[in-house]
Amino acid sequence: MKGHVTTTWPQIFADPHLTRHCVVGSPFDRTTGLNELTAGDCVKTTTVTSNNALNELLFVCLTALVVISLSGVMITVRLRTEQKVSLERHQISVFEELGVADQGVFNDLYAAALEIIEAHETDEDEWIAVKQLESDYISPFVHDLAWKKRGRISWHKKNLNSETKHTVLYMGKPSVRGGTGSFLLVCLHEHRKAGAQTREKEHAPFEIWYHKSTDVDLPQFFSDQLLITGGWKEVVAYKGEDEVIRLKGKEYL
């Protein structure tokens, strides 16, 4: 907005050396009210210049640039790549790939595996019998409503114990088609002598394998390759720690 004073009469001119304005001619002025002044009087005046539109635009752009740059830096600093559970070709994800009924059997079997291992560690290295699991109300072995709805899976157990390694297989296949696929729980427990070294790959305490077919046989011995060749897939759970990493990053684990 312009801030200069317009005078028609008397004329005011600037004295460049004294930075003051002096009046010449008649003392009457309609706009400035300088009618009290007479020729030769001088007044100090200040010229108010406005911020022009270009400056304002530059200021806004600069501020926006600073905000965007800061946000970019913050995003880069706090960026976390989403962790995905990477699967091998012989594995399937229970969370992504199995149906609700199969998920149910898997989760029951997963919890049962913890109990079977717990019992093996406390009860003189024995693996619990299927009948015992059933009478202890341990799902998916117990014959309850869920068992009926998931195709009445029948379970068989096979001990594969050696001197140094205790292994047990529990295989379940549905009696009724259309419910679920077949499941194989493999529990492994090493009995190494103190100081003994082995080159064998370390196994998790248990693994769960899945076969789409209901017509499968209980394997006579256990090896990953044998199961893979036979069409079994190792089931990988999406676990609590995977979700914590996805939500919070590894720093909180």
Binding site: F95, Q103, F106, N107, K239, G240, E243, V244
Partner: peptide, 30 residues
């Protein structure tokens, strides 16, 4: 973390195809 090692399942019955983790593991026996 109570859920460490716990197998999680998605929320079912939603209006979307996107699978979301169900965090209510404490409302169950298994």
């Amino acid at each position: 973390y109570a859920n460490e090692g716990v197998s999680l399942i998605p929320v079912t019955g939603t209006d979307t195809d996107r699978k979301t983790v169900n965090p209510h593991t404490f409302i169950s026996v298994t």
